[in-house]
């Protein structure tokens, strides 16, 4: 059977609930926007239900502990094709097993989840590192990103702790939403951004903003030690796809 859901985490958990309800042992769980239609299998549309989601989540937490359930959430945010199926198998394995399965790496689903979590974690850390705020005219520190995975929910805590005394916003251009901190709380927002947002135009940004970008670029250039140059290592650490957001690289 194929379960199509609305791409939210609650939706996915509701799908798990339904699969169990239907006693379906090998369900396919697919995001609505990715579903191409299927002639051969039965298709069921999942209605996202907070109540069902919570019931599944409680059960999962009881079986996998906080570490295991966190892993499930992180892997889910990868948005990888078929990650839902892997996660279902992971949950299945956890529910029947009497032992803690979160480190049973010889099980394919556990291994795949662990590997995915690692990738997601790496992307989350890259965002912590590579977000570059630019100060707007209304004193908001504003950054745009395009992470490979949907990691912004994971970055909230870090940025909120660190930048408690300034308004900031990190905007995911790929998924068209951002997280915005207004000195009190962090909210999800959607904006209509001009195409030129990557340029630091003085229509939006303060005049000293571009000066600071230059200072930073200058600083970055002076830290280089020519006799130690190692381009391969450099690109390994700062993959080229991130360069358009890093003033030290694009200026």
């Amino acid at each position: 059977m194929i379960f199509i859901y609305d791409a939210s985490f609650e939706g996915f958990l509701s799908a798990v609930f339904m699969a169990y309800e239907y006693k379906c042992k090998q369900p396919k769980i697919v995001k609505k926007e990715k579903f191409m239609g299927d002639f051969f299998e039965e298709v069921e549309e999942v209605i996202t239900s907070e109540e069902k989601a919570i019931r599944v989540w409680k059960k999962v937490k009881a079986k996998c502990g906080s570490r295991g359930s966190q892993q499930i959430y992180w892997a889910f945010l990868s948005e990888l094709d078929e990650i839902e199926i892997t996660l279902f198998q992971y949950i299945q394995h956890a529910l029947v097993s009497t032992k803690d399965i979160t480190k049973d790496y010889a099980h394919p689903a556990v291994l795949k989840v662990a590997q995915t979590v690692k990738q997601v974690g790496r992307e989350k850390h890259r965002m912590d590192a590579f977000v570059r705020f630019r100060k707007t005219k209304d004193a908001i520190y504003f950054a745009t990103v395009e992470p490979d995975f949907n990691v912004l929910p994971l970055n909230v805590k870090h940025f909120k702790n660190r930048y408690a005394d300034q308004k900031w916003c990190i905007y995911d251009l790929k998924r068209n939403y951002g997280i915005f901190y207004d000195l009190e709380k962090v909210e999800i927002i959607q904006l209509d951004l001009p195409a030129s947002i990557l340029e630091t135009s003085t229509d939006f940004f303060t005049t000293e903003e571009i000066q600071f970008q230059h200072l930073w670029k200058n600083y970055f250039d002076s830290t280089n030690i020519k006799s130690r140059k190692n381009t391969k290592l450099h690109q390994q650490h700062v993959p080229k796809r991130y360069w358009r957001y890093l003033s030290e690289k694009y200026l």
Binding site: H158, A164, F220, H234
Partner: peptide, 29 residues
Amino acid sequence: QNKGKGLGDSSGMGICHSYTEDGRCVSLL
């Protein structure tokens, strides 16, 4: 840790915000 809604927090792992062309971490000014 950040206290009294101030600026900054260094309770976590240090972060490399960029890397020099010889591959060393840039985390501090």
